[in-house]
Measured scan of single mutants.
Amino acid sequence: TEYKLVVVGAGGVGKSALTIQLIQNHFVDEYDPTIEDSYRKQVVIDGETCLLDILDTAGQEEYSAMRDQYMRTGEGFLCVFAINNTKSFEDIHQYREQIKRVKDSDDVPMVLVGNKCDLAARTVESRQAQDLARSYGIPYIETSAKTRQGVEDAFYTLVREIRQH
């Protein structure tokens, strides 16, 4: 089974770092803004072998026109913010609204991801993020692309959301 996953969120929150940590098991430290990259990885989730087709997208506003296209083809979405960047957390709402509009559905598989949880300088409390996820009816997972904490959990949870859909 193949799953088309799309990673969305503001610029600099760590979308590529999360994806590369999942696929290649290493942490990319330097920031190089993405336009669009796709990665494929075969994994076993709950005993089922599946192929993850992951689209890593641009957070930069100037590429926002490309969003409709990949939102149409994606089956599930990782909505990523950084726990030390309140603005990126506030941006999640717009991504969710755009996904709902493009998919013409209120019920699209999504996982809210709070990345950079290895950093002490948190400005978005776990509780705020949990409340937001609960209001959307989606899971919330904290990750660190640096330490790998929660990385597999985030992507695998999204696959489970798609399966249950």
Rank of each mutant, 00 (worst) to 15 (best):
R40E: 00
Q42R: 12
L132H: 11
A65M: 06
D68G: 04
C50H: 08
Y31I: 09
V159S: 01
T19G: 10
E125Y: 05
S126C: 11
A120D: 11
R96H: 01
V28G: 06
R127E: 06
R163H: 13
K146Q: 13
R96L: 10
Q98E: 15
S105H: 07
L18P: 00
N25K: 14
I20A: 04
E152N: 03
I138W: 02
K103C: 02
E48V: 13
Q94P: 04
D68W: 12
A154E: 03
T123E: 14
V159T: 05
N115M: 13
N85W: 06
L78H: 01
Y31D: 05
T86E: 11
K15V: 00
E62V: 05
Y3W: 08
C50Q: 05
T73D: 12
A58K: 07
E75V: 11
D107C: 06
A129Y: 08
I23P: 02
Q69T: 07
S126D: 04
A145D: 02
D153G: 08
V28M: 13
V43Q: 09
D56V: 00
T49M: 10
M110A: 01
V7L: 09
V6F: 07
E30N: 04
E97L: 10
V102W: 04
D118K: 02
I45G: 06
T49P: 11
E90G: 09
K87H: 05
A154L: 14
E152D: 08
E75D: 10
Q130K: 05
R122C: 13
D91K: 15
K15P: 02
L5V: 08
G114D: 01
V151N: 08
Q42S: 10
R148W: 15
V8S: 04
D37R: 03
F81W: 10
V80W: 02
G12M: 11
V108L: 08
T1K: 10
Q60P: 14
M110F: 14
T1S: 13
F89D: 04
Q98Y: 15
N84K: 05
M71D: 13
T49R: 10
Q164I: 07
T123N: 04
D37S: 04
I23Y: 12
Q128S: 15
V43L: 09
R67P: 15
V108K: 01
Q42G: 11
R96D: 08
F89K: 03
E30F: 12
L112C: 05
I92V: 11
I138A: 09
L158G: 01
S88R: 03
V113D: 00
D46K: 09
L78G: 00
D53T: 03
I138V: 10
A154F: 00
S105I: 15
V44C: 09
K87P: 09
T1V: 06
E2D: 11
R127D: 13
E48T: 08
T1P: 13
F155H: 00
H165V: 09
D106V: 07
D46G: 10
I35Y: 11
K15Q: 06
L52M: 13
C50F: 12
K15C: 07
L55K: 01
D29L: 08
P109N: 05
I92L: 07
V151H: 15
E36S: 05
G150N: 06
S144C: 15
A154G: 05
P109K: 04
R127Q: 12
D68C: 05
D131M: 13
I162R: 08
K41S: 12
E125Q: 08
R67F: 05
K116C: 15
T73I: 07
N115D: 04
A120I: 07
N115L: 15
E152L: 12
M71S: 01
L22E: 13
T86N: 08
L78F: 13
K100A: 10
Y136S: 03
D29E: 12
L55A: 07
T34P: 03
D118F: 01
Y95E: 04
L112R: 00
L78C: 07
R122G: 12
L119V: 13
L5T: 08
L158T: 01
C117I: 07
E90L: 14
S16P: 00
F81H: 02
P139S: 08
L18G: 03
E75Q: 06
V151C: 04
R122H: 13
V28D: 12
N115F: 04
V8W: 11
V113C: 05
R148M: 15
G74T: 02
Y156T: 13
Q69R: 04
F89R: 04
F81P: 01
T143P: 02
R67N: 11
V28C: 10
V80T: 08
D56C: 00
R163Y: 08
T157G: 04
R96C: 13
M66C: 10
S16F: 04
S105P: 06
G150D: 11
T123Y: 06
F27D: 02
L112E: 03
D56W: 07
Q128T: 08
I54C: 08
D104E: 14
Q128N: 10
A121D: 12
R101M: 04
T86I: 00
V124M: 11
M71F: 06
I162T: 07
E97M: 12
G47S: 09
V151K: 05
R163N: 13
R127F: 09
E62F: 15
D106E: 10
A145H: 02
G74Y: 03
F27S: 03
Q98V: 09
I92D: 01
E2K: 08
V43N: 14
V7K: 06
N84A: 15
Y140R: 03
E2W: 04
A10S: 12
F89C: 02
Y39C: 10
T123F: 00
S64F: 07
H165A: 14
I35F: 06
P109E: 05
Y3R: 10
M66A: 07
G150T: 14
S135E: 06
A58W: 00
G12L: 12
N84Y: 14
V43M: 05
V124Y: 09
Y156K: 06
I83L: 13
C79V: 15
D68N: 12
T73W: 11
A145F: 01
K41Y: 08
Q94H: 15
R148L: 13
G59D: 05
A10Q: 01
I54W: 05
D106C: 06
T19K: 04
S64V: 08
S38M: 02
D53E: 12
A145K: 04
A17V: 07
F89G: 07
Q69F: 05
R40N: 04
R148H: 15
T73A: 11
S38N: 03
K100T: 09
Y63P: 12
D106K: 03
I92E: 00
G12D: 15
D106S: 10
P33C: 06
S16I: 02
D106G: 09
I45H: 11
R96S: 14
Y140E: 00
A82R: 02
Y39P: 00
V111S: 01
K4S: 11
E62R: 14
H26T: 12
S144Q: 15
E30C: 10
C79F: 12
E90Y: 07
N25Q: 14
I162G: 02
V102A: 08
L5P: 02
Y39D: 02
T143L: 13
S88D: 14
C79Y: 11
K116Q: 15
P139K: 05
S88H: 06
V124E: 09
C79H: 02
A145W: 01
V108C: 04
L5S: 01
V44E: 13
F155W: 09
V111K: 00
V102K: 02
Y39N: 03
A10C: 08
Q42D: 12
E161W: 08
V159P: 00
E142F: 01
H165P: 13
A133G: 02
Y136L: 14
V28F: 12
E90I: 10
A154T: 02
E97Q: 14
N115E: 13
I138D: 05
M71V: 06
E61A: 13
G14L: 02
I83F: 04
S144R: 06
T143S: 05
P139E: 11
G11P: 14
I54M: 11
D32R: 03
E48S: 09
N115C: 15
L158P: 01
T1R: 12
I99E: 02
F155A: 02
N25C: 06
K146C: 13
D118T: 02
T157E: 07
F77T: 04
Y140V: 08
Q60Y: 15
S135Q: 12
F27I: 07
N84H: 14
Q24D: 03
F89I: 05
R67G: 09
Q24M: 13
T1H: 08
V28Y: 10
V44W: 01
T34F: 03
Q21C: 14
A120N: 12
L51C: 07
A10D: 08
S64Y: 15
Q21F: 05
E142H: 05
P139M: 02
G59V: 03
A129C: 07
L119I: 14
G74F: 00
I141P: 01
Q60A: 15
M66T: 10
V124D: 11
H165E: 13
T57W: 03
V8L: 08
L78I: 14
P109C: 08
I162Y: 00
